[in-house]
Lab assay of single mutants.
Amino acid sequence: SEIVVAMYDFQATEAHDLRLERGQEYIILEKNDLHWWRARDKYGSEGYIPSNYVTGKK
């Protein structure tokens, strides 16, 4: 599975969105859409994140 790191904070506005915290790692579950990826955080929460807010883990 692909691990990404959040470059920016993202506040979830929709129920299906996942909040991003800058510097935290997330697991990508689905990339069915170019701009919104389904991800899981370290607490096990899942939701959609803006793909341009994250970068591949170095």
Score class of each variant (00 low, 15 high):
G56W: 13
E30K: 05
Y43K: 07
R40A: 06
R22G: 05
I49Y: 01
E25A: 08
E14P: 04
I49H: 01
Y48L: 12
S1A: 13
I49M: 03
E2N: 10
Y43P: 00
V4K: 03
L34P: 15
R22K: 14
H16S: 13
D33H: 10
V54H: 01
Y48E: 02
I49D: 01
T13V: 14
A12Y: 04
T55Y: 11
G23Q: 04
L34Q: 13
W37E: 00
H16R: 13
K31D: 06
S45Q: 15
A39W: 03
I28R: 01
I49C: 04
Y43L: 08
E25V: 09
L29V: 08
V5A: 02
Q24G: 09
K42A: 09
R38T: 06
L20D: 00
K31H: 06
H16N: 13
E14Y: 13
P50K: 04
K58I: 14
Q11N: 13
Y53K: 07
P50F: 05
P50W: 05
Y8D: 06
D9W: 05
T13C: 14
R19W: 07
E21H: 09
E14W: 10
M7F: 06
Y8P: 00
D41R: 01
E46I: 09
G44F: 04
I3P: 04
R19N: 15
K57M: 11
W36R: 11
P50L: 05
K58Y: 14
A39V: 12
L20C: 02
K42R: 11
N52R: 12
R19I: 08
K58F: 14
D41V: 02
I27E: 10
A6E: 00
Y43I: 05
I27S: 06
D17C: 15
W36S: 05
V54Y: 02
S1I: 15
G47E: 01
D9Y: 05
L29E: 00
D41A: 02
V4F: 09
T55K: 11
E30F: 07
I27A: 07
L20M: 10
E14K: 14
K31W: 06
V54Q: 01
E2K: 07
V54I: 07
R22N: 05
D17L: 15
E30I: 06
D9S: 09
M7W: 07
K57H: 10
W37A: 01
R19A: 13
R19G: 11
S1F: 15
R40Y: 03
K57W: 09
I27H: 08
D17M: 15
Y48S: 05
S51D: 02
E30Q: 09
M7I: 14
W37L: 03
R40Q: 08
E2Y: 13
H16C: 15
I28D: 01
M7Q: 07
S45A: 14
H16Y: 11
K57V: 13
E25H: 08
K58G: 14
Y26S: 00
G44Q: 04
K42Q: 11
Y26M: 01
E2D: 11
E14C: 15
K57C: 12
E46W: 04
Y48F: 13
Y43T: 09
D33W: 07
V5L: 09
S45H: 15
G23F: 07
L18I: 06
G47T: 04
I28F: 02
H16A: 10
E14R: 15
A15S: 12
Q24A: 10
Q24D: 07
E14M: 12
E21C: 11
E30V: 07
L29D: 00
I3T: 09
M7R: 09
Y8H: 09
Y43G: 07
Y53M: 12
E25Y: 11
Y43Q: 08
G44A: 03
D9L: 04
D17Y: 15
K42C: 08
I49P: 01
I27W: 11
E30T: 07
Y26P: 00
D41I: 03
L34T: 13
H16K: 13
F10Y: 14
P50V: 03
N32M: 13
L34V: 13
F10L: 08
T55F: 08
F10W: 15
A39H: 02
A39K: 01
Y43V: 05
R22I: 11
Q24E: 14
F10G: 01
G23C: 12
V5K: 05
K31P: 02
K57A: 11
A12H: 05
H35Q: 11
E25I: 10
I28E: 01
G56A: 15
W37H: 02
W36L: 06
R38W: 15
Y48D: 03
D9N: 10
Y43C: 09
I49A: 01
G44I: 03
V4S: 02
A15G: 10
H16T: 14
K31S: 08
S45G: 12
A15V: 12
S1L: 15
Q11S: 11
D17A: 14
S45K: 15
G56L: 14
L20R: 00
N52H: 13
A15F: 10
I3V: 13
W37F: 05
E46T: 08
P50C: 10
Y53F: 13
